[in-house]
């Protein structure tokens, strides 16, 4: 097993997740390195989305879910009673499989997070909106139409808007659930570029089923199979010299 350089940002300890009687995540123990891009790969239905939703507690609102084990973020167990869910979620920006813009203008989408967290000052909001739209590489395309409905943007633009919106609450962690799967190649590339530029400041955790994407951007790879972690380690190691036969099979396209 390889060592993680520096302290882990997120630690999972013996995590089990059940939907009713169905156990979806099995005894997951994993350290996610700080300020690197960790990519989770694995076949469809193996529990990748569930794992992400466990991290920001979006799973709370699903009926009949049970979570066992510990999830430590910055050393704090986010499932211990008394923890404020909104504060945990504020630490993480989520990019979903399909971009989901809010039913309001482009500007209001980005300002939504800061506003609910109490920022009212118009000038500061303007600055935040511009800063994060720039980071998401969208500013030049939308600067003249900030008051237009966000739903008029193209899908690729919407996904970058979602990124800007997530960054605007100033999270430490970015969770991406196959964020490029609904996008065309050019938009995917844009989103990938954004994520790469962000890793100096954020811990990025990305789910993908595109192996080439994993090769392009991953520092650290986790291979999830049927709810279990089969193998994890630095990207080069796992991708080039997988130890487990199941990882080998997945990487060579025999299981998908």
């Amino acid at each position: 097993m390889s060592l993680i350089i520096g302290r882990p940002h997120i630690s999972l300890k013996n995590l089990n997740v059940y939907y009713g009687h169905l156990q979806v995540l099995k005894n997951i123990t994993l350290d996610i390195p700080d300020r690197q891009i960790t990519v989770i790969i694995g076949p469809s239905g193996c529990g990748k989305t569930t794992l992400l939703k466990t991290l920001n507690r979006l799973l709370d609102s699903v009926e009949g879910v049970r979570v066992e084990g510990r999830v430590l973020v910055d050393g704090e167990d986010i499932y211990s009673p008394g923890v404020e869910v909104t504060r945990i979620r504020k630490k993480m920006g989520l990019l979903s499989q399909r971009p989901q813009v809010l039913p309001m203008s482009i500007y209001d989408n980005v300002a939504y997070g800061p506003r609910i967290h109490g920022l009212k000052n118009k000038q500061q909001l303007d600055q935040i909106v511009e800063r994060y739209l720039r980071i998401a590489g969208l500013w030049d395309e939308v600067k003249d139409r900030l008051s237009e409905p966000a739903s008029r943007l193209s899908l690729g633009q919407q996904q970058r808007l979602c990124l800007a919106r997530g960054l605007a609450v100033e999270p430490e962690i970015i969770l991406g659930d196959e964020p490029t799967s609904a996008l065309d190649p050019q938009s995917s590339q844009n989103v990938e570029k954004c994520l790469l530029s962000l890793k100096s400041q954020y811990t990025v955790l990305l789910v993908t089923h595109i192996l080439r994407q994993a090769r392009r951007i991953a520092d650290y790879i986790v291979f999830l199979y049927l709810g279990e972690i089969v193998e994890h380690g630095p990207a080069q190691e796992v991708l080039n010299n997988p130890r487990d036969p199941r990882t080998k099979a997945y990487l060579s396209g025999e299981i998908s």
Binding site: S61, S96, L102
Partner: peptide, 20 residues
Amino acid sequence: DLLEASFSLGATKFETAWKV
């Protein structure tokens, strides 16, 4: 998904209901 988008930004249920 729209609700989740709002929740994931740290919004409460009420804020989500009221604003989204």
